[in-house]
Structures are given as C-alpha cells and as structure tokens.
C-alpha cells in the first residue's frame, strides 16, 4: 500500500474512533464524570509545612519557659548600703587600740587649736 493510501486509511480509522468516543451515551458520560471527580477529590490535599508548625511551637515553648524561669535566675535587689564613711568606720571599729584616742577626740581637737606656747 502506498504511503499516501496508508495515511488516508489510518486517517479514516482515526475518524471512526473519534466518532465512537464522541457519541458515547449520556449514562456513560455521567459515569466518566463521576470517576474523574472522585479521582480529583481523592488526591491528597497539600499539607501545611510540618516543620513550620514544629518551629512555631518550639519558639512559643521556649518563650514561656524563659518568662517562667527568669525571676529565679536574677538575684533579688538588696537595699544599697549607705555610702560615704563606711571604710573609715570599719577601720576605726576594727582597731581596738585606737578607741581611747577616738574617745578623747574632742580633747585632741581642742589641744590642736591652742596656739603654740613654746
């Protein structure tokens, strides 16, 4: 069979097959439609990214733990000691030999104020 005849022959067969597919009855077309819809519905839906949920949960948990634990980690603020002569007071109190000197401090101040008499 010549190539042209073969093309014509296959073209006629293709047309007949197309016609047979086009002229399917309504009941069959309905079944096909239902089958297609069922297949498309059965396709798994796109899942939300699981790692995103896990990361969100981990972050929220960490934040809650930090808020709960933070006050226990930071020491309670004590009132500040009075500033000024504290070191000098300690020195004065620590040396027992100087107590008498401090008790007579007024006398020594008066003595120091007296003019030198030679």
């Amino acid at each position: 069979m010549a190539e042209h005849d073969e093309d014509t022959w296959t073209q006629r067969i293709r047309q007949q097959l197309d016609t047979s597919a086009r002229d399917l009855d309504a009941a069959t077309l309905s079944r096909l439609n239902q089958a297609r819809q069922a297949a498309l519905q059965a396709a798994p839906k796109p899942q939300p990214r699981r790692w995103l949920w896990q990361a969100t949960f981990a972050s929220a948990f960490s934040l809650a733990m930090a808020i709960a634990i933070w006050p226990r980690l930071v020491p309670e603020q004590l009132p500040a000691p009075p500033t000024g002569t504290l070191p000098e007071d300690f020195t004065m109190l620590a040396g027992s030999e100087n107590l008498e000197l401090y008790e007579e401090l007024d006398f020594y101040a008066w003595l120091d104020a007296q003019p030198a008499s030679g």
Partner: peptide, 28 residues
Amino acid sequence: IERRALRIAEFGVGNREDALDIVQDCML
C-alpha cells in the same frame, strides 16, 4: 482523555462496565 481511555479499555476487556471500572481505577 477519558473517552478515548474508555474506548481503549472497552476494546481490551470487551464490555463497558468493566471498562468503566478500569478507567475509574486508572484515574485514581
């Protein structure tokens, strides 16, 4: 493709009911 698939299945199994079942299963 569904109509041609049905006809191909029908040629293969010889009846429309089985062909419809096969095409549905194939689509899924």
